[in-house]
Amino acid sequence: MAYDVMYTAQATVTGEGRKGHGRTEDGRLDVDLSVPKGMGGDDGPGTNPEQLFAVGYAACFHGALKAVARKDKTSVDGSTIESHVSLGKSDEGLDIAVELDVTIPGVDQAKAEELVEAAHQMCPYSRATRGNIEVKLTAKAV
């Protein structure tokens, strides 16, 4: 697949993977990594790959939501994306599942669902994971 690169993030992880340290080349992200209790860790200081993925996916999805809303001439001001990333065991090993709870004020439920589905089609994270992991979307109009 050919595409024009707009941006490339570069990061390095050292140490013991989930008990290591991660840093982007520009220093904007510089984090200790720890293993959550649910995976046999001690919930020590730091974050984990699932938390980083949850923030990244939610941010990317929110950008896609705002883009489709602009095109639709619909305001999504005050919208929020709550992201849940779960790691679990399957027959193939460890797998990830994602739930995105999208709240959009000022629209009816049908419009909220339409915008969320359109964002799901546009979002690079959604496209990258489509067919590979379970992604559950919930749209909520308030």
Results as ranks from 00 to 15, higher is better:
68 V>H: 07
75 S>A: 09
38 G>W: 02
73 K>G: 07
63 G>I: 14
36 P>K: 02
44 G>Y: 04
54 A>H: 02
77 D>T: 08
75 S>M: 03
50 E>V: 02
80 T>A: 14
46 G>I: 06
51 Q>H: 00
69 A>M: 08
78 G>F: 08
47 T>F: 02
79 S>T: 13
71 K>C: 03
32 D>N: 13
61 F>G: 06
53 F>R: 03
44 G>P: 04
44 G>V: 06
71 K>M: 03
48 N>Y: 00
80 T>I: 05
77 D>R: 07
78 G>N: 09
31 V>Q: 09
48 N>C: 00
58 A>C: 10
64 A>D: 10
70 R>N: 14
66 K>H: 13
32 D>W: 07
50 E>R: 00
75 S>P: 06
35 V>I: 15
55 V>K: 02
32 D>T: 13
58 A>N: 06
36 P>N: 01
59 A>N: 12
71 K>I: 00
38 G>T: 05
76 V>T: 10
72 D>A: 15
63 G>S: 13
45 P>H: 14
59 A>V: 08
63 G>C: 05
39 M>E: 06
50 E>S: 00
54 A>P: 09
69 A>C: 03
67 A>E: 15
53 F>Q: 04
65 L>G: 14
40 G>W: 12
69 A>V: 05
50 E>I: 02
35 V>N: 00
32 D>F: 07
72 D>K: 09
57 Y>C: 06
44 G>W: 02
31 V>P: 10
45 P>R: 13
61 F>A: 10
55 V>R: 01
55 V>N: 07
31 V>S: 12
50 E>H: 00
66 K>N: 12
67 A>C: 05
57 Y>E: 10
79 S>G: 13
42 D>A: 11
55 V>E: 15
52 L>T: 00
60 C>F: 10
36 P>H: 01
79 S>I: 07
76 V>D: 02
70 R>C: 08
49 P>Y: 07
51 Q>G: 00
61 F>D: 09
68 V>S: 04
54 A>V: 12
58 A>H: 08
76 V>W: 09
56 G>T: 12
36 P>F: 01
68 V>R: 11
44 G>M: 04
64 A>Y: 06
32 D>H: 14
62 H>W: 11
65 L>T: 10
79 S>W: 06
64 A>I: 07
62 H>Q: 15
31 V>N: 08
74 T>I: 15
41 G>W: 02
46 G>D: 01
34 S>E: 05
74 T>D: 04
33 L>V: 06
34 S>I: 01
33 L>S: 04
67 A>M: 10
35 V>L: 10
76 V>I: 13
46 G>M: 06
76 V>A: 08
43 D>N: 13
35 V>M: 08
73 K>H: 13
66 K>M: 07
60 C>P: 03
75 S>K: 05
71 K>N: 03
51 Q>V: 03
43 D>E: 03
60 C>E: 06
78 G>T: 04
49 P>S: 04
68 V>M: 14
32 D>G: 14
62 H>R: 12
43 D>K: 03
49 P>C: 04
38 G>M: 10
42 D>Y: 02
69 A>L: 13
40 G>V: 11
60 C>T: 08
44 G>F: 11
45 P>L: 08
80 T>C: 12
69 A>W: 04
43 D>A: 09
54 A>R: 03
44 G>Q: 05
78 G>V: 10
48 N>R: 04
